[in-house]
Simulated scan of single mutants.
Amino acid sequence: MLDSQESRASSLLLLAGVLLIAFNLRPAITSVGPVLGLIRDDIGLSNWSAGLITSLPLLAFAFMSPIAPRLGHRFTIEKTLFIGLLILLIGISTRSVSHSFTLYVGTTFVGLGIAICNVLLPGLIKEKFPDNVSLMTSMYTTCMAIFAALGSGLSVPLSLGLDLGWQRALLSWGILTVVGLILWFFVFRDQNQYAKPSIPPTSIVALWKSALAWQVTLFMGLQSFLFYVTISWLPEILLDFGYSMSTSGWLVSALQFISLPFTFLAPILANRWKQQHAIIWIIGICALIGYSGLLTRPSFGWLMVCITFIAITLGASISLALTFLGLRAADARQATELSGMAQSIGYLLAACGPIFIGFLFDLTHSWTAPIITILLITILMIGFGLGAARDKYVLD
């Protein structure tokens, strides 16, 4: 009976650790978009170099994602997740110094820390919660989305309302990381008492030859392109429409809160259907309606309709992409390797988004060309999503 109680307590501790890591996976990034103009003006950056602030974490994702599974095998997944949180805290602290060098270096460390956690969580869930992969994915992606929304919504009030400036406003998210480090220390110490060694990683070469693995990867990359472009530049688009900085930040935050039910539901629905083509079509149509509506410089009422459709897209697509990592893998080893591939190549593609959209705006001085580009990316995402939705394993 005692063993059963200890096992239950251990599972609950692990669950709390997973969710607290999820809290830390987005606010260090989404908190930047609403104050990007303040950072740009304070340091004297161009629009494309300001976009680099959002793209650097994605480049770090691309670099670290293939390495993370090997680190997880060498140090255990639990200990490596602790290391990831520590790197994230170093990045948040360094980035908050008002200088272009520390800004870029700290932002890179933020990306490296988050990448480790991004890659290892799907494999950990597949291994520790094999009968509840979809539910666990729903829970942690929803928690991730909640704090992503808080990151967007609180940046301007913290920076201007509380007069913290953008530096201390961004630094404040380190408090959440410290809490995560404390809890995760107890998690990996508890798990290492009886956990068996992690399964050795398999060769990535086999995945590179899998069409399905590429479809999962490109779906993740293109939906991430849409997410990070939206988080980075929608506040600036809304400023161009005549809204205040504070209102723009809260509208982006509202978008993310609206997305929460769809973030939670997509993995559950995906688990009930052998193929997920219907979900892909819903995501794609909502994206086309939402982003094309921005071309009309909509009134506030129509703008909220557009934001709602975009919210459905971003909420459902990220959780579905992460669910594919488990559904298209036969075991925890494949899930971890597929996660590494999808997040490496996918986020490398996504990293182009904020920079390229900023470049297009600098070139045209209009948001028309950037929005049309977003619509073209949406069409590609639908195509690769339909391929990823097939009922197969990547190495079948």
Rank of each mutant, 00 (worst) to 15 (best):
I43C: 01
T296R: 08
F241M: 09
R8T: 05
L294I: 00
T107A: 01
G123H: 13
E236N: 08
I345P: 04
I182K: 12
K392W: 10
L171Q: 08
F384H: 06
S4I: 13
Y393N: 07
S246F: 08
N271T: 00
H277G: 03
G180Y: 08
W173A: 07
I29Y: 11
G387P: 01
M144Q: 12
T263D: 11
I282E: 03
L38W: 01
S138P: 04
Q334L: 04
Y291H: 00
D331G: 03
V105M: 10
T263E: 07
L160I: 08
V18S: 11
A278P: 05
I146H: 10
E337A: 13
G72Y: 15
S11Y: 11
S366P: 08
W233G: 00
L222M: 05
G249I: 11
S339A: 03
R8L: 15
D131M: 15
P200S: 05
I372D: 05
T336R: 14
G161K: 10
I282W: 07
A62C: 11
L322N: 05
D190V: 15
I83L: 09
Y194P: 04
L71T: 07
A332S: 07
V216D: 01
L2C: 02
T373I: 09
M139Y: 11
I377N: 10
A369S: 12
G161I: 13
Q343G: 06
I237T: 00
F185T: 10
K128R: 12
Q215V: 03
W367E: 00
